[in-house]
């Protein structure tokens, strides 16, 4: 799998403030790439560099193997976090204008807009002014404008903010569909559940530096601690617990269950395999639950940032 986008050693300073320091990322073709980081970490600066809004002081960006040039603007669709539309302009006119700025001809833009307006069932908005629409409605128009020119690379900065759950779902499905059609997506957000759900690659930026990057599965494998969550139905919970504590690194766990069972988390050392643990547990009682604890991206996020401080 080749990389659609490569950023190499991007550094950007504003006066004395360093916004990005030697950041490199690789966004594989066809992936959904989560760009994560606390507020002020430098995500927006990185995105602006990719969009050629800001020039990096050092470093270079390659799109599809070519050094980034002005003609690449039409290959990128960008939905910024701070977004809006001209309030007093009509929806249709505005969408046409923004599409033409991305290099579409007027006729082509009109055709595609009709398709999308039909799809979202918003054709009757065409002659409305933006100020007559609700925030969520305007967001839909912005989404359409972002994807209209079929860019290779889509960058969404907090795409779901301002949407109700139903519309957020519609947008999520659209994003997934765009990926299926071959688009590569960079996804910057604080909402970890959507990262968990959508992203297959992530990069974590903190205080202007990249501190983690890779495939989500690999990262999770790297961060998992060989811990298992166990629900065990025994005759005597207390005795079993003390026995387990002697033999393994055991902590009390808490999850919802209907029976009065022993709930623990056991972290295995390298000598013991999960099967051995399971075998041992079956001798102690009825195993109702046995599953590996895989760290969520949220935990990884918090842990990595804390470790780097």
């Amino acid at each position: 799998m080749s990389n659609l986008l490569e950023v190499q050693g991007a550094t950007k300073q504003f006066g004395n403030f360093t916004a990005l320091q030697n950041v490199s990322i690789e966004v594989p073709q066809g992936s959904i790439f989560g760009l994560l980081g606390p507020n002020g970490a430098g995500k927006t600066t990185l995105i602006r560099i990719i969009n050629q809004i800001t020039l990096p002081d050092h470093g270079s960006v390659y799109l599809d193997g070519q050094a980034l040039q002005p003609i690449h603007i039409k290959d990128i669709g960008y939905l910024p976090e701070e977004r809006g539309l001209y309030k007093s302009m009509r929806v249709g006119e505005q969408a046409l204008y923004l599409a033409q700025l991305k290099g579409l001809s007027k006729a082509e833009a009109k055709k595609r807009l009709q398709y999308w307006f039909d799809k979202f069932d918003i054709t009757h908005w065409w002659n409305k002014k933006i100020q007559e629409l609700s925030k969520g409605m305007a967001q839909k128009v912005q989404f359409i404008v972002t994807v209209l020119h079929n860019p290779k690379l889509l960058i969404f900065d907090e795409p779901f903010s301002g949407f109700d759950p139903i519309n957020a779902n519609i947008i999520k499905d659209e994003i997934l569909q765009l990926r299926e059609q071959g688009a590569t997506i960079i996804f910057s957000t604080h909402r970890m559940e959507s990262v968990e759900e959508l992203c297959d690659h992530i990069a974590l930026i903190n205080k202007s530096k990249k501190i983690l990057e890779g495939k989500v599965t690999n990262i999770k494998r790297q961060y998992k601690s060989n811990t298992f969550e166990i629900g065990l139905l025994t005759d005597d919970n207390d005795t079993t617990l003390s026995v387990l504590k002697e033999k393994f690194e055991t902590n009390i766990a808490d999850f919802k269950a209907i029976d009065d069972q022993l709930k623990v988390r056991i972290t295995l050392d390298n000598q013991t395999s999960p099967n051995q643990l399971l075998q041992y547990l079956t001798q102690k009682g009825q195993v109702l639950r046995f599953n590996e604890v895989i760290p969520g991206i949220n935990e990884i996020f918090i842990k990595t940032i804390k470790d780097n401080e």
């Binding site: 002005p70 910024p80 809006g84 539309l85 309030k87």
Partner: peptide
């Protein structure tokens, strides 16, 4: 100022200089 306060500015300058 309108473009700034409407927050459309970043959308536009991702297309034009």
């Amino acid at each position: 100022i309108e473009e700034k306060s409407n927050r459309i500015i970043e959308i536009i300058i991702s297309s034009v200089k």
